[in-house]
Simulated scan of single mutants.
Amino acid sequence: MDRSPMTTLCYIENKDSYLMMHRVKKENDINRDKWVGIGGHFEEGESPEECLLREAMEETGLKLTSYRLRGIVTFSTDKYPTEYMFLYTADKFEGELTDCREGVLEWLPKKEVYNLPVWEGDKIFFKLLEENHPFFSLKLQYIGEKLTEAVLDGEKIIK
């Protein structure tokens, strides 16, 4: 079966930090060498919440006990099929952090995420999260790794 175009992406918060994953372990990884949140593709029949909770447990060993859907991000690139990411933040969890087979997990201050090697569009939604923006729809269009268009709630913010 082909992978679902639907994914979850979550930034787990602890005080002033996000749990970030440095994607250095998988070959042929669209996110290779970048810092991202946790998450992944829906499995057949999963709801967004079921995917979020499964991916959080698989990638971090943590059971999320408080989380919030913040927006939907349409991630479009010339190299891969379009992904529709359900973007969450989580502020409560149980368990101990485990090693991840996809990357290295690290708690990093929220203000430092802008300086990491991240997708350019991630900086847009970091700002929206920081501002506690109401639920949003963000479309990010890339050619290679260059952000060529960003559309927030139907309005172009980068042309």
Rank of each mutant, 00 (worst) to 15 (best):
R70T: 05
G71P: 10
I72Y: 00
V73C: 10
V73G: 04
V73Q: 09
T74P: 00
T74M: 05
F75D: 02
F75M: 00
S76Q: 12
S76K: 15
S76E: 14
S76T: 12
T77L: 02
T77W: 01
T77A: 01
T77H: 01
T77P: 03
D78W: 02
D78T: 11
K79M: 05
Y80C: 03
Y80Q: 12
P81Q: 06
P81H: 10
P81G: 09
T82L: 00
T82N: 09
E83D: 04
Y84S: 07
M85T: 03
M85V: 05
M85P: 00
F86H: 14
T89F: 07
A90T: 13
A90H: 09
A90K: 11
A90N: 13
D91V: 06
K92T: 04
F93S: 14
F93T: 09
E94I: 10
E94S: 13
G95Y: 04
E96C: 03
E96L: 12
E96S: 10
L97C: 12
T98L: 05
T98N: 11
T98G: 01
D99C: 02
D99H: 07
D99P: 01
D99I: 07
D99S: 13
C100H: 08
R101L: 08
R101P: 12
R101V: 12
E102Q: 11
E102R: 09
E102D: 15
G103S: 13
V104N: 02
L105W: 09
L105K: 04
E106D: 02
E106S: 09
W107C: 08
L108D: 10
L108E: 06
P109Q: 08
P109A: 10
P109Y: 04
P109E: 14
K110F: 11
K110T: 11
K111E: 15
K111S: 13
E112Q: 15
E112I: 07
V113F: 06
Y114A: 02
N115P: 05
N115K: 14
N115L: 06
N115V: 03
L116S: 07
L116N: 03
P117H: 15
P117K: 14
P117V: 13
V118Y: 05
V118E: 04
V118I: 15
V118N: 00
W119Y: 13
E120M: 03
E120F: 02
G121A: 08
D122I: 01
K123T: 04
K123P: 01
I124P: 02
F125A: 10
F125R: 10
F125C: 08
F126G: 04
L128T: 09
L128F: 09
L129K: 07
E130M: 03
E130H: 12
E130N: 12
E130L: 05
E131T: 09
E131A: 10
N132L: 07
N132Y: 11
N132P: 11
H133A: 05
H133N: 15
H133W: 06
P134I: 11
P134R: 14
P134T: 12
F135C: 05
F135W: 13
F135H: 12
F135T: 08
F136T: 01
L138M: 12
K139S: 15
K139T: 15
L140P: 06
L140W: 02
Q141D: 15
Q141Y: 09
Q141W: 10
Y142P: 01
Y142N: 03
I143A: 09
I143N: 08
I143M: 06
G144L: 04
G144E: 10
E145N: 13
E145I: 07
E145L: 08
L147P: 05
T148A: 07
T148D: 01
E149Q: 15
E149Y: 04
E149N: 13
